[in-house]
Write a protein that binds this DNA or RNA. Structure first.
Lengths: 246, 246
DNA sequence: AGCTCATGTGAACGGCTTTTACATGAGCCG
DNA sequence: CGGCTCATGTAAAAGCCGTTCACATGAGCT
């Protein structure tokens, strides 16, 4: 009947009109639900209301769809890290930790992207565009570490910023991957992943000689774009980055 | 000879004789080669020289084979961590770092096991035996952290051992997962994964107030009352756990 | 020798990926 | 408006995999 045809046309027409985007969205949902390994090209096609062969007009194969998602993920990741870093405001240490939390938040709130980016097993270095996107995201952490390294307390040698960045990345990824994902590797914890990572980073920074009570550094040491707030131990209990020992 | 009999049986017998083990070995090789996602039940069967249906006499399905491998992996993992810890000899800090290195070594040398254990996406908590094996492995790290925590410098609050253990685990897993695997996520690094993790752990321990020069403890009492920065010991270059700043 | 049961086989079903030949209709050009 | 062309869809088919089922075999026990 004609109404059916009309409706189908209204919905998608013979030509879908935006199949590529629809496939990406469908895949995103499927990956979030069943993981990148369980995600199926045919399922995405079905969800978009097209035949199983249609996706091949827009992606060379299943891997290319996955890569596209990973790429998009890295871009959003970069954007969120950039926002969290906020150019080091109000002070470098606070902003640095905000980046760590943004990392975890992304892993938690965008499991599909995170999965495609870090747990799908696709070769990052095979796709130059993907590698570049990954690099740009990491560069946010790297730039933040750079700023932090420049604040190394006088008298102590300055830690290499690249090393710091890699350390922070490994901590964030380790916590996210082991403790902060819904699907599989969830373990019972005495504290939330966020608290765990925060404490970890604070202890680490203290190990580098940074003051971790988040008080503004000594006069003139940091060139603040904005005068840092005079916070009095908002995030860190007195005595250490962990709770009171019982 | 008896080996000849075994071989003949393995080659020609209608009954394979040791199919379960052969399948596990074959799967191990395949996972090492193509990842847990790319591993195929049929391929394992083919490699063992049996029909595609034969494996179902020994494993309920593909996932159970994967679980078996993960379980075996956790057992080997535990054994290696135990050996590395060596009950805290010659001193706690040295032994603790040896555990970290053993973690990385396992990830590097047994990629198939590591993959099945941590990156295959199989639900750890669904299989009680698997969960128990995982727990036992983690308990090595936990016990080591316990010992370390007991050495907390006087005057500072004692860090919770569980938290320390989780931190160390996340660092080791983060480094292993991001930088120390052959397949995918390999990135260019200014230092080896081992050095990266070692520095990370040392800085972290220093952040907790532990001396990190790794000198054998003074006779009798393990905690040497040496201020952390005052020493220029063997394992750590003067100035810090990282190389000389340029 | 004969029985029985664990262990293997082959065939079959449904699902997935990917390719190929074909269909359709949207946009453009005269 | 009519017709051309090409991007974008479809159906069908080949080849793979996971899984099941009926059936075959032979190892070990009595």
């Amino acid at each position: 009947m004609s109404w059916r045809k009309e409706q189908r046309r209204a919905e998608r027409g013979y030509h879908h009109g935006n199949l590529k985007e629809a496939l990406l969205q469908a895949a995103l949902g499927l990956i979030a639900e069943k993981g990148a390994a369980g995600f199926t090209f045919a399922d995405a096609a079905r969800m978009a209301g097209v035949s199983a062969a249609a996706p091949y007009r827009h992606f060379r194969d299943r891997d290319e769809l996955l890569s596209s998602i990973a790429q998009r993920g890295f871009e959003q990741f970069e954007s969120r890290l950039t926002a969290a870093w906020d150019d080091g405001r109000p002070d470098t240490v606070t902003a640095f930790e905000r980046v760590g939390k943004a990392y975890l938040a992304f892993a938690r709130e965008e499991p599909a992207f995170y999965n495609a980016m870090f747990e799908s097993g696709l070769p990052v270095d095979a796709n130059p565009a993907l590698q570049a996107a990954s690099e740009r995201a990491f560069n946010i952490i790297r730039a933040a570490a750079e700023r932090l390294a420049a604040l190394a307390p006088p008298g102590t040698p300055r830690p290499p910023a690249m090393m710091m960045a890699l350390h922070i990345w490994s901590m964030a990824h380790g916590v996210a991957s082991l403790f902060s994902r819904g699907d599989a590797a969830r373990r019972k914890l005495p504290m939330s992943p966020d608290e765990l990572l925060e404490a970890e980073v604070l202890i680490y920074l203290r190990g580098l000689g940074f003051p971790t009570d988040r008080r503004p550094p000594a006069k003139g040491a940091e060139p603040p774009p904005v005068p840092p707030e005079a916070s009095s131990g908002s995030g860190v209990p007195p005595g250490g980055p962990w709770g009171k020992p019982k």
